[in-house]
Simulated scan of single mutants.
Amino acid sequence: MSAITRDEVAHLARLSRLALPEDELDRLAAQLDEILSAVAKVQEVAQGDIPPTSHALPLTNVHRADVALPGLSPDEALAGAPAVEDQRFRVPRILGEEE
């Protein structure tokens, strides 16, 4: 026997403001019945003596201190650039805009 009926699907569709064709009500009733059966199986397995977990293995967050380190000087940063202009990276123009 189906756990959810065609009329219940139609009622849920009305509550959700969904306009479902008649042939879709039967198909959705069968699909929702399968979903409810799967949830029932999971509920059988998940007994009260098993503590809830979010992951199968215990996880701990590893945090490190946020330490500011000195960066490259402009000359060091530009040393490997293929083209430099006015202490900046020179790149090819990609837009046809005039300066």
Rank of each mutant, 00 (worst) to 15 (best):
A13F: 12
L69I: 09
R90S: 15
S2M: 07
P52L: 14
P21H: 01
V84C: 03
T5P: 13
L20P: 03
L69S: 12
S73A: 08
A29N: 02
V42Q: 08
L59S: 03
G80Y: 08
D26Y: 04
G71V: 01
S37H: 06
V42G: 12
A79Y: 06
L28Q: 01
E99H: 10
E22L: 09
L95C: 09
L78S: 05
R17P: 02
L15Q: 14
A3N: 13
H63M: 09
L28I: 00
L25W: 00
M1L: 07
R88H: 03
I94R: 15
A10F: 13
E24W: 07
M1Q: 03
L32S: 10
E34P: 04
P74W: 00
E97R: 15
L25M: 07
D7I: 12
L32Y: 10
R90K: 15
V9E: 05
A65R: 06
V67A: 03
G80V: 14
L95Y: 09
R88S: 01
F89I: 08
P21V: 03
P74K: 01
E97P: 13
R27A: 12
A40V: 08
D66H: 09
P82T: 12
H11D: 10
N61Q: 12
V42K: 14
A30T: 11
R17W: 01
Q87V: 04
L36G: 02
P70I: 12
E8Y: 02
D7V: 00
A79F: 03
H11Y: 11
A77P: 10
A40N: 02
S73Y: 00
E8C: 02
